[in-house]
Amino acid sequence: MKNKIILIGGSAGSFSVVTQILTELPKNFRIPIVLCLHRLKHVRSGFAEALSLKSSNPVIEPYDKDRIEEGKIYIAPANYHLYIEAHKHFALSTEDSINHSRPSIDVTFVSTASVYKENVIAIILSGANNDGAYGIKRVKDLGGITIVQNPEECQVSTMPVSSIRIMKPDFILSSTEIIKYLIDINNKAFFGK
């Protein structure tokens, strides 16, 4: 299946894990990745650029209506919610914060799940509030694969713990295991290995 998508949500303590993941994913990684991370509202530039330096694939802050493309890593822009629309493009919104968060991980996960259904691989990393828990539950309900970072490894475990509380993730993994899992699934999807 080539129309898979990977969602990664996180807040406090997730930046180093995201950096590690992006650093270790190979250049031939084709499945699009959408990062929804809580970030400072007023810092518009620098984040995607900083991640780009570490990543072998381009890290992009999408504009409204940009199409989702293979081999790209997208990061939700500061101070907007990031939806995915039925025709697989992004849609941004300035609706109110949800769970004190904009971007809200729940918004991105729920809307992606309704479009990509069983082709979503959703990951919740370290974070300080319960945004994302409902979203990853919806991914699971619609048949997607769900992964929560092992709370014992997390700098701040509130986000993974709240997720585990309301749903049973398919996997609870360390960051190293997450990377291995993603590489495997990419190889299977694109190279038949």
Partner: peptide
Amino acid sequence: YAMSSFRHR
């Protein structure tokens, strides 16, 4: 209208 956000509202 952009459907996702409209449906949500």
